[in-house]
C-alpha cells in the first residue's frame, strides 16, 4: 500500500490513541474513586470522619478519606463496631435514570500513593441496626481491618 500523509496519521492514530482510549475507559470502570494529589506521610491515614444520626434499631453510614502513603496497595478487608449489629462496606450508585441502588463491596482496595473517598452517594461504611441512638454530637469507634496494615481504630463523630 502506498504510504500517504493520511495513511501515516491514520496508522499513528490507530496504533497509539485507540489503545490509550480503551485503557482509560477500562480503568474508569474498575478503579475506586481516588485522589492523585498526595501530602507527605507514611502508612495508612484516615481523616474527615463523620456519620449520620440514626435512631436505635435503624441504619447509619460512616464517611471518611483513606490515604495510602505506601508504594504498595492495601485492602480494607472488613470493619467492626459495637455500635451496630452488622457493619459492611457499601456503595450507592445510580442504577438507571434517577433510580438509586446500593451494593456491598466485599473488599476495598486502597491503591498505592492514593486517597479513597467514602462519601455521601458513593462508598460508605454501612451500620445496620445501630445498637443505640446516634445523635448530633455523639461519637463512636470503628475498627478497620487492613490486609497490610492490620487493625486501625478510629473515632467517628455524628453530625447532621
Amino acid at each position: 500500500m502506498k504510504r500517504t500523509p493520511f495513511t501515516f496519521f491514520a496508522s499513528l492514530f490507530a496504533a497509539l490513541l485507540l489503545p490509550a482510549l480503551f485503557l482509560i475507559s477500562g480503568c474508569e470502570a474498575e478503579q475506586p474513586r481516588t485522589d492523585a494529589e498526595m501530602i507527605d506521610g507514611d502508612g495508612i491515614h484516615i481523616e474527615g470522619t463523620w456519620a449520620r444520626p440514626a435512631s436505635e434499631g435503624r441504619m447509619s453510614a460512616a464517611y471518611f478519606l483513606i490515604t495510602n502513603f505506601e508504594e504498595e496497595p492495601d485492602t480494607l478487608l472488613s470493619v467492626e463496631s459495637d455500635v451496630a449489629r452488622l457493619v459492611e462496606i457499601h456503595e450507592s450508585f445510580e442504577r438507571e435514570e434517577g433510580m438509586m441502588g446500593m451494593r456491598e463491596i466485599p473488599q476495598l482496595q486502597i491503591p498505592a500513593q492514593s486517597t479513597v473517598r467514602l462519601e455521601q452517594g458513593g462508598l460508605h461504611i454501612m451500620l445496620i441496626q445501630v445498637t443505640r441512638t446516634l445523635a448530633d454530637g455523639d461519637t463512636f469507634e470503628l475498627t478497620l481491618n487492613f490486609a497490610g496494615h492490620g487493625e486501625k481504630t478510629i473515632e467517628i463523630p455524628v453530625r447532621l
Binding site: 449520620r52 444520626p53 440514626a54 435512631s55 435503624r58 441504619m59 447509619s60 453510614a61 457499601h90 450507592s92 438509586m100 446500593m102 455521601q120 452517594g121 460508605h124 454501612m126 451500620l127 445496620i128
Partner: peptide, 10 residues
C-alpha cells in the same frame, strides 16, 4: 425510607 443509611439521610 428509614432503613436507608446513605441516600435517604442525604
Amino acid at each position: 425510607y428509614t432503613h436507608c443509611p446513605d441516600i435517604c439521610s442525604f
